[in-house]
Amino acid sequence: MTTETLTHQKESLRPRRESADSESKALFGFWIYIMSDALLFASIFATYAVLQNNTFGGPSARELFSMPFVLTETLILLVSSFTFGLASLYAHHHNSKNKVLAWLLVTFLLGVAFLAMEATEFTKLFQEGNSWQRSGFLSGFFTLVGTHGLHVTAGLIWMSGLIVQVWRRGITTTTIGKVGTLGLFWHFLDIVWIFIFTFVYLIGAI
């Protein structure tokens, strides 16, 4: 009886082990992508740092940005990183589909709120005549913050797809793997934002 269960268990475990292995390979591959994305951001950060005082007689960072607004944006993105962590927690350890869906949805809405705030800021700058054509500083600013915003947009599109997939198929090895990779992406974007918050907004306000 016991040997039977054991061999049975072994057999049922094997395909899972293999797919878990390929999941971890996918995760590692995605990690390498994230790191190359970090290099992309590093180049844009360096460009911004070089250009940040070249305002060409236009407004500087200190005159343009509202600090409480930026702090709100930062906290929203931070909370969304945390709620994604909760979604990934329920997917990996508790196998509860509804909680995963709920936390993914909360994360999605926070991401939308963040993007909406960023769009508001960009529109305001643009309407006041401070577009990317105004000065080297503003070109650098729009490139850096805009690239991050595009990443967030891509993350949100991906997340909406994942929500549909989890909703239809439930928690499977495949969906768990996807929650894992999107998690890497989302937490990475939060880390990049910390540096934008520090180098563009905080140091700009000094």
């Binding site: 702090l71 930062t74 931070l78 520090t198 905080l202």
Partner: peptide
């Protein structure tokens, strides 16, 4: 599994609280 879940939760909460502190102070 449950134990690992609890540890992961602890890790996310610690990370979140520390991050908020590390954002608010420099601000």
């Amino acid at each position: 599994q449950y134990e690992a879940g609890r540890r992961a939760l602890g890790s996310y909460v610690t990370g979140f609280v520390l991050s908020v502190i590390l954002t608010i102070i420099p601000y």
